[in-house]
Simulated assay, not measured.
Amino acid sequence: MPLSRPSSLPPAGGAALRLLPGLLGCAAAVGVALAVHAALPALPAMTAAVVLGLLAANLPGAAGWSAGRGRAGLDFAGKHLMRAGIVVLGLKVSVVDVLGLGWPALLLITAVVLAAFAGTYGISRLFRLPPPVSLLIATGFAICGASAIGAMAAVRRIRQQDTVLPIALVTLCGTLAIGALPLLVGPLRLAPETFGAWAGASVHDVGQVVATAQTAGASALAVAVVVKLTRVLLLAPMVAAAGLHHRRGADGGGRRPPLVPLFVLGFIALAALRSTGWLAPEVLAAAAVLQDGLLGMALFGLGSAVRVRQLLHTGTPALLAALASWLLIAALGLGAAVVLIPAG
């Protein structure tokens, strides 16, 4: 029996090699983003990762690599590593800490999230953005930035290309909040705790909340993190509700989408594990590093798909919608903060 000529690589090995350049680029970008954050603490590492992705997509030389040899790995990171990062994000959410706010505060924060979601979706449609893009913008602005956008895109089966603009907008507006909100503490005569509650209720990404609230001190940061994680906890029920709606509207002749994706169930499971108090601080610290790595690689991959020239040409209505939504959420968050922490 003649021996067949061995192929140079098995199919799985070939696929892995195609992913390798992009994944290595993502890993290197996360290292740079973390270094930038260490040098400039006001700039969250995740924001830096998106900016580096934008540079990779638009600088001569790098643009050819991101569109060609690196594209397979970059797309893999933007989809699959984003989902893995959302799972690990569950280890940041302690239900015990959230419940410590009390039921009136929880209901108020939930109302703010729902109002922000509905208002942002309405504003986006007013500016004639497509429904899928409007849904992603509303989700990211109302809950927890890019992580929420990735989760909603998965459950609604929205194309990865359609997540790029919402993530760019949520990163831009979150960065704007880091610079703008601390400037208003004096004119609005906000106590540190009130400012922290405002940042937690209105800034999009967890890292952006930390960067904003820490300008007012440790007490502001402590309040901001708990309020923000309450919003993060709402990711699971809102994504489940969106999945149920999408499942009911799916064509019965095709494969129906899952009610809740496995990665969202993973998020819930790890949040429950965190809430038991069984995990050592060292484990939580290692999980935080892992989450930063996964989400940073995902955001670099997504940012590398943004062509600035095309964004400037087609993104003006989206930019105006995002700024209007940012003002709406800032106003809602400020009102909630004043109610949560009355002036003493």
Rank of each mutant, 00 (worst) to 15 (best):
289 V>N: 04
242 A>Y: 09
273 L>M: 08
7 S>D: 06
220 A>V: 03
118 A>M: 07
134 S>I: 11
326 W>H: 09
159 R>M: 00
243 G>P: 13
335 G>Y: 13
232 V>H: 02
82 M>L: 15
124 S>Y: 07
105 A>Y: 05
195 F>P: 03
158 I>R: 12
315 G>F: 09
20 L>F: 14
97 D>W: 02
96 V>K: 11
294 L>N: 02
155 V>G: 04
24 L>V: 15
326 W>M: 08
257 P>L: 06
249 G>F: 10
280 A>H: 15
238 M>E: 00
50 V>F: 15
148 A>P: 05
258 P>H: 03
25 G>V: 11
43 L>E: 01
254 G>S: 13
275 S>E: 10
241 A>V: 15
68 G>L: 09
256 R>A: 15
241 A>F: 14
131 P>Q: 10
226 V>E: 06
5 R>D: 04
253 G>E: 13
28 A>K: 05
114 L>M: 08
291 Q>Y: 00
224 A>I: 07
207 G>I: 09
188 L>E: 05
124 S>M: 10
175 T>W: 07
321 A>D: 12
66 S>H: 03
267 F>Y: 14
242 A>N: 13
35 A>I: 01
312 L>M: 14
70 G>P: 02
298 A>Y: 04
312 L>C: 13
250 A>Q: 11
317 P>T: 13
73 G>V: 08
176 L>P: 05
158 I>M: 10
185 V>P: 01
144 C>G: 03
311 L>V: 11
333 G>H: 11
70 G>Y: 09
